[in-house]
Design a protein around this nucleic acid. Sequence first.
DNA 1: TGACAATAGTCGTTATAACGATTAATACTG
DNA 2: CAGTATTAATCGTTATAACGACTATTGTCA
Lengths: 161, 161
Amino acid sequence: MLQKRTPARKPLAPETLLEDVFVNLLRTADALARGAEVLLKSTGLSSAQYNVLRILRGAGSEGLACSEIACRMISRDPDMTRLLDRMESRGLIARARGKEDRRVVKTCITTEGLRVLEKLDAPVRDLHHRQLHHLPAKQLQQLSRLLERARSNGESSCSPD
Amino acid sequence: MLQKRTPARKPLAPETLLEDVFVNLLRTADALARGAEVLLKSTGLSSAQYNVLRILRGAGSEGLACSEIACRMISRDPDMTRLLDRMESRGLIARARGKEDRRVVKTCITTEGLRVLEKLDAPVRDLHHRQLHHLPAKQLQQLSRLLERARSNGESSCSPD
DNA sequence: TGACAATAGTCGTTATAACGATTAATACTG
DNA sequence: CAGTATTAATCGTTATAACGACTATTGTCA
C-alpha cells in the first residue's frame, strides 16, 4: 500500500492541483447536467423541477415542507415558491397548508406527476449508462466516495432521500 | 493489486451506482460553485463573467472570437453576445471586428479587467484551499483524473486554456 | 460569376433566476 | 400575557438565461 507506485500521469503540479480539481468538477458536472437537460426538454421539465419530483416521490404521501424540499435539492433554488407555483399550475404537485403549524405548506406529488416521472425512469437510467458506463465499477465507487469527501467540508447535510 | 481488499464502504449497490455518481457530482459541483459565487458577489461578477475574464487573460493580446470563448467556458452559455455586452459596458473587455474575416469579433481583456482579476487571484486560491485542503494530494489527483475520464465520453474538447 | 450553403454574431421575446423586503404564524422570555 | 425573536413562505423588482429567428459575411461549386 505504501510502495512508490505513483504513475506520474501528470507532472504533479502542486500549485494548480486544487484549481484542476475545481475546474474538472464543474466541467464534468456541466457535461452530465447538459445531457439530462436535453433529455428533460421533451417533457418541458427543468432539471430543478425534475429534482423536486424525485424528492417528492421519495418522500411519503404526507408531503414535504417547502424548506425541506429546498434543502434536499441538488442545486439549491433560492425561490422555491415560484418553482412550485409553476409545477402546481401544470398539475404535477399539490399544496396544502399544514394543520398543526399553519406556517408550513405541505407539498405532494400528484398521480400526474408520478406518471411523468415514471415515463422518465428508463430514459434517465439509460442516459447515466451512456454517460458513465466506460468507467469500471471500482472507479465509479472511488469517484463517488471522493466526491462525498470533497464536499464534506462546509455543507449542511439534510437527511438524505 | 488483485487481492480482495474492497472495504465494503457501501453495500455495493450495482443499480444505484451510476445514479450515485451523477448526483454526487452535481451536488459537489454546486457546493463548490456556490462558494465561488459568494466570493465573486462583492465584485459584481457572475461566475460566467469571471470565467470569461480568466479565459481572456490566458489568451494572447490578439483576443479571441466569441465562439472560441464560448467553447472554452466551464458552463456553456448559449448567448455570448449579451454576456460580453455587459462586460464591455463595465469596461472589463474590449471588442473589435476582425480585419481579415469581418464576421468575427475579437474580444480582449482590458487593463481594468486585468486589475479586477488580479485582486481575485489570492482570494480564489484561498477559497480552493479551504474547500479542498482536507483531501490529501494523492486523492486530489485521483479525483481529477477520474473526473476527466468521466466526461471523456461525449464532449467536444476545445484547446485547453 | 451567381446561386446556395455555411458560419459568426446579433437581436426579440418569453420565461426564469436572484435579491431583498414583507407577511403570517409560532416560539421564547421576562 | 405582552413584546420580541424566529421560522416559513410569499411577493415585487431587476437582471439574466433560453430559445428561435434574423443579418451579414464568407466559402463552395456548377
